[in-house]
Amino acid sequence: MGEAIVVTSGKGGVGKTTSSANIGTALALKDKRVCLVDTDIGLRNLDVVMGLENRIIYDLVDVVTGRCKIHQALVKDKRFDNHLYLLPAAQASDKTAVTPEQMKALIDELKQEFDYIIIDCPAGIEQGFKNAVAGADRALVVTTPEVSAVRDADRIIGLLEKEEHIAPPRLIINRIRNHLMKNGDMLDVDEITTHLSIELIGIVVDDDEVIKSTTHGEPIALNPNSKASIAYRNIARRILGESVPLQPLDDEYKGVFSRLKKFFGGK
């Protein structure tokens, strides 16, 4: 029986879809059977980031409303043998086309077949969020080092803590920029983790390669040399239960990271 992990944030554009695609990719590279589920109905784009848009025949709403069977809607990613699939969101419907109960049933069914179900959540706290978390066992909260993103992450964590079926959420800080943090022009990692007080599972630098890879429909995690890729692979390893220390991004930044060790205790 697999595990369903929802990737959420509250605020839009902070990297939920990028994180979902890359964590899924990194888990598949680790020989896990992974299904990515795009729940951003009406604004789907996980398929684009994965470069799978042209293979979509059916979508999540088709499955839920019984227009097709689950396996007919799953898009196989040929780069990963039999390990990575995508269940795309519907583009022509809206978020009310699916209920949380239907989502839970769907995710439960996928858990029979896959090791990990990565659920890409839409922005906001309404129906789309409720659908995305309904079937999840775990949650990853993505934020950027900006006050507004952290504020929304806090709100989302509050809502996630009320969902009894979900384990305590873990945090990804995305798009950090060393020079800004060092000068105090951006919230630093320490401030964010103290504020949100949940376990930190990874830090991803702001990396142009991420944007380039999106353009080509190739998740950055496939490229072993970029910093963002290493970060996503490490997050995947931590999801698998490995204890991977946080990598210093550069030497000047060591101070912050030695202080951070405490956030990577047990688990």
């Binding site: 504020r151 929304d152 806090d154 709100r155 964590i157 509050g158 803590e161 007080s197």
Partner: peptide, 12 residues
């Protein structure tokens, strides 16, 4: 006196 051990987050 009611004691509560938790974080009161945004919106709560």
């Amino acid at each position: 006196i009611v004691s509560v051990a938790r974080i009161i987050r945004s919106g709560q």
